[in-house]
Design a protein around this nucleic acid. Structure first.
Length: 239
DNA sequence: CTCCGGGTCG
DNA sequence: CGACCGGGAG
């Protein structure tokens, strides 16, 4: 029996109220350290979807100029559907992963053909789009419509892995224990702010490079790695 | 579960 | 050099 199967008795969180305090704390920190990427100032699901595809295995800073040029040239699905492959290739080339050019082009075809030029809100429909899996589907649903979907990527998995002392592997973002924790932690009232904050903590504080910045981490008191856990920490769980 | 992708920048 | 707000193939 590992921590996190029940948040309130995980040894990390002593009660549901403690979980709420965690959410409030990370959101408060997130508001002060919000990274102002251009795709964070729109609720247009099309633009958020395109941003997430561009962010796939690509540094956010590298995406910024390409994203801005892209939405200027193709502000909506019809405009994208009219684009030529050569135009798209030139716009997206600086991002690398050139298979994304064909993917985005194909995506425009699906959105225009099957979804009347709009981005579907249902998880199943999003997952039916080419190149879209759990992370991007959830990110679009949360950031565009405010659904409290959890985000499981290498960064958020690293944060909860350290918090709960779970061994982090390449497969952890698809592991049910990690996913259950991430799902249980999401703030149901402010999911956008919460998920932005979690991503920003992962990027600015809980960095992959060791050691992480635990001395300035806003949620260190709920983290085994940071030496928080006041009373009965359950220790490391291997698997 | 493991492995790969790509131009770009810290 | 190594790593990047993941997804699909093997």
């Amino acid at each position: 029996m590992c921590p996190a199967d029940d948040m309130s008795h995980s040894g990390i969180f002593v009660s549901e109220g403690d979980v709420m305090a965690f959410r409030r704390t990370i959101i408060a920190w997130g508001r002060e350290h919000f990274r102002p990427f251009p795709w964070r100032f729109t609720a247009d699901p099309y633009r958020i979807l395109m941003a997430e595809v561009m962010l796939h295995r690509t540094r956010a800073a590298q995406v910024v100029p390409v994203y801005s040029k892209f939405v200027g040239s193709y502000p909506d699905v019809p405009a994208l559907a009219r684009a030529t492959g050569e135009e798209l290739y030139k716009t997206l080339y600086p991002l690398g992963l050139r298979w994304r050019v064909a993917l985005i082009y194909e995506m425009a075809t699906h959105l225009a053909g099957r979804f009347n030029g709009s981005v579907p809100v249902e998880k199943e429909a999003l997952l039916s789009l080419p190149g879209i899996s759990d992370y991007i589907a959830s990110a679009v649903r949360c950031f565009a419509w405010g659904y409290p979907d959890f985000l499981a990527d290498t960064n958020t998995v690293r944060v909860v892995g350290r918090m709960f002392g779970l061994k982090i592997r390449d497969s952890s973002r698809r592991n049910s224990r990690f996913r259950n924790i991430l799902a249980a932690l999401v703030d149901m009232e402010y999911p956008r702010l919460y998920n932005y904050a979690l991503l920003d903590v992962a990027d600015r504080i809980c960095v992959k490079k060791r050691p992480p910045e635990c001395n300035v981490c806003p949620v260190a008191k709920w983290c085994i790695q940071a030496g928080g856990i006041p009373i009965h920490g359950k220790g490391i769980c291997e698997d």
